[in-house]
Design a protein around this nucleic acid. Structure first.
Length: 303
DNA sequence: ATATGGCCCTGGTTGC
DNA sequence: TGCAACCAGGGCCATA
């Protein structure tokens, strides 16, 4: 399932390929899901807009869009231009002019969502819900068998931009991290999955970070010591950064924007390793259910 | 306010 | 071999 590292990989890939391109025509499927904004309104909002930048917020992919009517010759940045990261609210064109997004297309991949850059002639996969034809001649497609994904359009002239409710685990500092869990009675695993506390952590990296921090997933969040919380913060950041470097984990049918699989699943210590020996102590990895989610841990290493 | 459990949805796996 | 029951789970909602 796409979590922070997978979404980051995909957002970077789409940004490198589509930055500066323009949406010419949009097609949506007839299903009720995955459309958070009604398809008709969404299509109308997207058509004609320039893709200024694509970046990640939590598990969401946010496409920052310019005004309508820009011609391909107005493209400010060529694909792959090093741009110094992912601007959240604005950025700088190659000619030095600031740009301000006027709209956003927000993509959540859910469990099985995929965002693919193809040619219009390419075979259309089953469960394709969105096809964005681009001025460059390419096509951006959203495919999602299970339809847990979400597509949303926001006009920034009429409302506010997307910002995840929770804090980013890659940048949160010690004090604030500890504060998130203070006084909470729920399991630390459940707290890690709560997107209004931390944003971007899903089942894989919750289990992996708790293993690396040597903490039992069922421990009450508010009962962890300050030292344990700091271990958890640093291990969570480390495992997410490591996974991003490897292009994410390919479990289920996750692939990046080019259809390439990541490699972090080869380095999982506990996730989906039930019964296999712990990489640290050889004790068989156990599975239990916490907060309704399959949870994997080492009974010897995690206390 | 906080926490829990059901629901959505399909494909892959399991069991008979 | 074939088919059906079962399970996975992110986010949202109702409920306690």
């Amino acid at each position: 399932m796409p979590e922070l590292p997978e979404v980051e990989t995909i957002a970077r890939g789409v940004d490198a390929r589509l930055r500066g391109d323009r949406i010419v025509e949009v097609w949506f499927s007839e299903h009720r899901e995955p459309f958070k904004t009604p398809p008709g309104r969404q299509a109308k909002g997207l058509e004609g807009r320039t893709i200024l930048a694509v970046h990640r917020v939590g598990k969401h992919i946010v496409c920052e869009l310019g005004s309508e009517g820009l011609r391909p010759s107005d493209k400010g940045l060529s694909p792959g231009t090093p741009g110094g990261g992912s601007p959240a609210v604005g950025g700088v064109r190659s000619n030095g002019q600031n740009y301000k997004p006027e709209a956003q297309w927000i993509v959540h991949l859910g469990m099985t969502g995929r965002l693919l850059v193809t040619t219009p002639e390419g075979p259309v996969a089953a469960h394709t819900h969105a096809r964005l034809r681009l001025a460059s001649g390419r096509e951006l497609r959203f495919v999602d068998a299970r339809r847990f994904g979400r597509l949303e359009f926001r006009n920034l002239r009429r409302g506010t931009g997307f910002s995840g409710a929770g804090r980013e685990p890659l940048t949160i500092e010690a004090e604030e991290f500890a504060g998130l869990f203070r006084g909470r009675r729920l399991a630390i695993k459940a707290a890690l999955l709560n997107q209004s506390l931390l944003t971007g952590v899903g089942n894989i990296y919750a289990d992996e970070s708790l293993f690396r921090a040597r903490i039992r997933p069922r421990r009450r969040a508010g009962r962890l010591t300050r030292a344990e919380l700091e271990r958890l913060r640093l291990e969570l950041r480390a495992v997410l950064e490591h996974a991003i470097r490897l292009g994410g984990s390919s479990v289920s049918d996750y692939v990046d924007a080019d259809g390439v699989r990541g490699f972090f699943q080869l380095e999982h210590c506990v996730y989906q390793r039930t019964g296999q020996p712990c990489r640290r102590c050889e004790t068989p990895i156990r599975r239990m259910v916490v907060a309704g989610r399959g949870t994997h841990y080492c009974p010897h290493c995690q206390r």
